[in-house]
Structures are given as structure tokens and as C-alpha cells.
Amino acid sequence: MPQICVIGGNRYFGRHLIGLFQDAGAHVTVVNRGSAPQPPGTDHVIADRDDEEALTRALGTRTFDAVVDQVCYTPVQAAVARRVFTGRTARYVMTSTMEVYDPATCASPRPPAATPVPESTVDPAGRPVTWDLPWRSSAALTRLVGEATAYAEGKRQAEAVFSRDPVFPFVSVRSAHVLGGGPRDFTGRLRHYVARITAGRPVAVHRDPARTSFVHHEEIAAFLHWTATRSDFTGPVNAASHGAFTVTDLCEAIAAATASPSPVYRTVPEGEPASPFSFDRPYAMSTARATALGFSLTKVTDWLPSAVAETTAEISQEV
């Protein structure tokens, strides 16, 4: 029986991921701080991943065929995991993000503006790691560099720690923006758009919004499961549904799916925050590597209408 470890992330698509492993006959160990209940049928290890001694002690003699790390946000966390899981796992998969490509948060080397962006644009093995930043305090780090940069740079540098002189086969899955319908999507981002568009309220957008990438919550779970159970590739891989959208493309699709009038937009002045998924710079991802490796990706238009319908139904039940 395959032994799988999932660190954190057992809400939203993480819960679906665990179910996929179980359906395939794997034994799943979930590691978290105990703030969320364990999914049925899993082995629950309660430990703070930042506490190296406690994590090592809690894991005991367990070994794994693969680890899926859903909540690695900093190089310090990556360094702890690297030490703790050396000799314990045959494969390590980190859930990363397309934000590693965001030129607005990347000082040097800066990714090019051309899209779609391939994985080689940000080489984790060649990136510097800045150990003297306040990685252990998210509040201090955010005050210093801003929330978006703290998130994106934390992911970039975490990938770098795992990638240099790797102690186990390592893959970073750079996920597109995850969307899903109904109460499973605790982020509320799709709900934000559905609620505003169906009510005829304006959506704040940039003057010339750029295209970005999306993936359905079930698809990213399936992609992580596939990645963890493969053994023939390592390194970064982009995960996104086919068909990059601008924020206005997204709004028009939601309006069509809900039979709403054309969306109303408010163009934000330069420097003012816009709605989620409105970007003034392009960094939609290339999925050529994932496709070449054999994963069959869907199109955004395949799943967006049903996700919108789920969200619309949820909103209507609350009225």
C-alpha cells in the first residue's frame, strides 16, 4: 500500500486530493497543527511544521512514497522540511504558485513580460536565498516588503532551498489561480464576481487588464495526485487549464452563465487596488511541459459555467 504524507492544506482542493489518494488505495498521513479535523480514514500527525524537533518526534519512524507539501511559504520552512524528510520519502511535491512569475514582485532576475510564461523563466536552483529577512514573522515580512511580494518571494525561495543539491526527487507545482463553486471555495474570489455581476454592481478593473491563468479546484487536486504518483520528472511544472482570461473575459463569462446584463466596470486609477484577477501586467502560464509529460488539462470554459452555477445557488440560498 503506497504511503503518502500531506502537509496541511486539507481544506478546499486539499481535501479532494486526499480523497484521490485514498480512492487509489494509498494510506494517507496528514500533518497539521490540529486546528482542522482530520479527513476520515487518515493517519493524523499533529505538529507545527516550523518546529523541527517536534515534527521529527511526531513523525516517529514513518516513511513515505511521496510527500505533498501544501503549506510551504518560506525558505525557512523548506529548510526544516528538507532536513526532516531526508531519508523519509522517495518524492517531494511542493504546491507552489504562478505568482513566482509576477514581475511586480520579483526584483532580480525579473521574469520577462512575454506570455505564456514557461517554467524556465524562474529557475529555482539558480535563485538566491535571503536568509536575513524576517521569514518567521509573516506580519514583519509583510510590513517590510508587502503582502504580494512576501508571498511570491517566499515561494520562489522555498523552491530554491529544495532545488539546490536535492536530497530527494523534488517537484514544484506552480498552480494557476484556483476557482471552484459553492462553500468549498473559502477564498470567496469567484463569489465576489458572481455577487457583483448578478446585482449589477461595478467591478473594479485596470484600464488594460492582462490575461492570467486559472485552474479548477478538482483539476489542481488531480494534477497534484498525478505528480506525486509519477517518478519520471522533477523540477517546476505549471498547472493551469487551457485558455488564459482577462478579468473582463471572466466577468463576461459569468454574466453569460447567470443570464445577467453586461457587467459594469469601474476603471481604477494607476496604483489603486482592483478586483482579484485584474492585473496590469501579463504572466499567464505556458502548459506545454505538463501536456508533454502526459497530463490532459481541461479548458476554463469546460468547468467555469458549473462553478458559477454552484456559487449562484449558494448565494440565492442565503437571501
Score class of each variant (00 low, 15 high):
134 P>S: 05
134 P>L: 03
135 W>N: 13
135 W>C: 03
135 W>E: 11
137 S>T: 12
137 S>F: 06
138 S>Q: 13
138 S>G: 06
138 S>D: 05
140 A>Q: 15
143 R>M: 02
144 L>W: 01
144 L>C: 03
145 V>R: 11
145 V>Y: 01
147 E>Q: 14
151 Y>L: 01
152 A>K: 10
152 A>S: 15
153 E>M: 15
154 G>C: 10
154 G>E: 14
155 K>P: 06
156 R>S: 07
156 R>Q: 03
156 R>G: 09
157 Q>D: 07
157 Q>I: 07
157 Q>S: 04
158 A>H: 13
158 A>F: 08
159 E>Y: 04
160 A>F: 05
160 A>M: 02
161 V>S: 01
162 F>W: 08
163 S>K: 05
164 R>F: 00
164 R>T: 11
165 D>Y: 01
168 F>I: 02
168 F>A: 15
169 P>L: 05
169 P>S: 04
169 P>I: 06
170 F>M: 01
171 V>H: 06
173 V>M: 11
173 V>Q: 02
173 V>D: 05
173 V>L: 13
173 V>R: 01
174 R>H: 01
174 R>M: 08
176 A>W: 10
176 A>S: 15
176 A>Y: 04
176 A>R: 02
178 V>S: 04
178 V>A: 04
179 L>A: 02
181 G>D: 03
181 G>C: 03
182 G>E: 10
183 P>T: 10
183 P>D: 13
185 D>R: 09
185 D>G: 09
185 D>A: 13
186 F>L: 07
186 F>T: 07
186 F>V: 13
187 T>L: 04
188 G>W: 08
189 R>V: 11
189 R>N: 03
189 R>G: 05
189 R>P: 09
190 L>T: 09
190 L>K: 09
191 R>A: 13
196 R>C: 03
197 I>W: 13
199 A>P: 02
199 A>V: 00
200 G>P: 09
202 P>F: 06
203 V>N: 11
204 A>S: 14
204 A>H: 11
204 A>N: 09
205 V>C: 07
206 H>L: 09
207 R>W: 00
207 R>A: 15
211 R>D: 01
211 R>E: 12
212 T>F: 08
213 S>N: 01
215 V>M: 08
219 E>T: 14
219 E>M: 10
219 E>I: 10
219 E>L: 00
220 I>L: 08
220 I>A: 04
221 A>H: 05
221 A>R: 08
221 A>T: 08
222 A>C: 00
223 F>N: 02
226 W>V: 14
226 W>I: 13
226 W>N: 13
228 A>N: 02
229 T>K: 00
229 T>R: 14
230 R>Y: 10
230 R>Q: 12
231 S>C: 03
231 S>E: 11
231 S>V: 04
232 D>H: 02
233 F>Q: 13
233 F>V: 06
233 F>L: 12
233 F>H: 13
234 T>A: 03
235 G>F: 03
239 A>I: 10
240 A>Q: 12
240 A>P: 03
241 S>L: 02
242 H>L: 14
243 G>V: 12
244 A>Y: 02
245 F>W: 15
246 T>I: 07
247 V>R: 12
248 T>S: 09
248 T>C: 06
